[in-house]
Design a protein around this nucleic acid. Sequence first.
DNA 1: CATACATGTCACCGACTGGTGACATGCATA
DNA 2: TATGCATGTCACCAGTCGGTGACATGTATG
Lengths: 212, 212
Amino acid sequence: MADESETNRVRERAGTEARLITALGEIIAKKGFGAVGVNAVARQAGTDKVMIYRYFGGLPELVRAYSETADFWWRPEDLLADPLPDTPEELPDAIALIFERHAAFLRAHPVTLEVLAWEMSERNALTECLEELRERRSAELLAAVAGRFGLPQDNARERLGPAFALLGGSVNYLTTRARLTPIYDGMDLTSDAAWAVLSETVARMAKALVEH
Amino acid sequence: MADESETNRVRERAGTEARLITALGEIIAKKGFGAVGVNAVARQAGTDKVMIYRYFGGLPELVRAYSETADFWWRPEDLLADPLPDTPEELPDAIALIFERHAAFLRAHPVTLEVLAWEMSERNALTECLEELRERRSAELLAAVAGRFGLPQDNARERLGPAFALLGGSVNYLTTRARLTPIYDGMDLTSDAAWAVLSETVARMAKALVEH
DNA sequence: CATACATGTCACCGACTGGTGACATGCATA
DNA sequence: TATGCATGTCACCAGTCGGTGACATGTATG
């Protein structure tokens, strides 16, 4: 009968759940967090919004499910990959490289940028997941850097910690902002040249963190 | 008659326009940019949304009118007010003080913080006004600092410019973010203590900007 | 006084939102 | 084979949104 071709709607809960979760990610990546809603996600998944309520309980729970499948943030290894200077006197260059890689990571991960933007206007399962992940990975990174360059942990936490917060915050801001407003202080933040200049500046400033 | 007490609705275009403009500012300050809409603004102004269309043409034009009445950003004088170090060797401390005052300004101007947050998800008359204002004032600040500390303008633009962009971006990010998510890298950004630590870090890093 | 206009008020429209009940259909089990 | 349940589909609800037309009323002008 014609049934076979028509009624081919998968009829499998796991598949529908998976399609809903990936659809959410696609919406975020393509349209931004402003476009997220039960209707849009269900349409993108090719199913009905009723499934969101039946299988997840609601949009917040679907968002939570999505947050558990994804990995939004870098791992310390990503930023400390070779080639990276080792000796203590090269620490400023290493910091600049970490800065560069942090920026490159974000510029290559649009969903993370959207969630970072979301954090500015709303708290939800996704932003809380990213927040928790970033806090943990930042601490790990700091410890890893201290270990690699032979700094005492408490000293690193006192001196390097706030500096990493400052520089990291700057990267988060400038990359997130650049999606819609590329110009900042006369620089085009979508260009590699601007980021090279910024990285150079970081290298120079980082020198003062190690000296005396 | 009872007319006088009942029909006291001002019946004056200028007054209604002014109430609409101030109502927009109140909505932004109290509820954030997500709550801005013709219905909400008209209700806050105690009038009818028809007036927004009749007198301004629509919400975007009302927003534009509001943007022309307000002054969202610091002036260079605000950040360079006395007491501020003068001598070239004190430049790092001056930079740290500018950083502190930038942060203090934003923490005291919730509407500006909301517009900064808005920039992350949307472009409109308000965000463009703030963008233009900030770009201009930043350039003025840089020139003023160069003048005050006897730096050649092109040198200042090359070395101090990117550093100001980095530090300023960090302040924008951390203050805007702290409205909803105060914790960042283990610091409570609503506390003065955290900002004191950050300022100290800036002072240390700025030393490397002047040396050699 | 009578006319014309500006101001303010109200009701309504279509579109979209989140959310729910009712129903058809297929599969697994008794 | 027949019953029960899970899956999927559709229609509908109430609420809000931006936007507009129609009307009442006050004021200034002829």
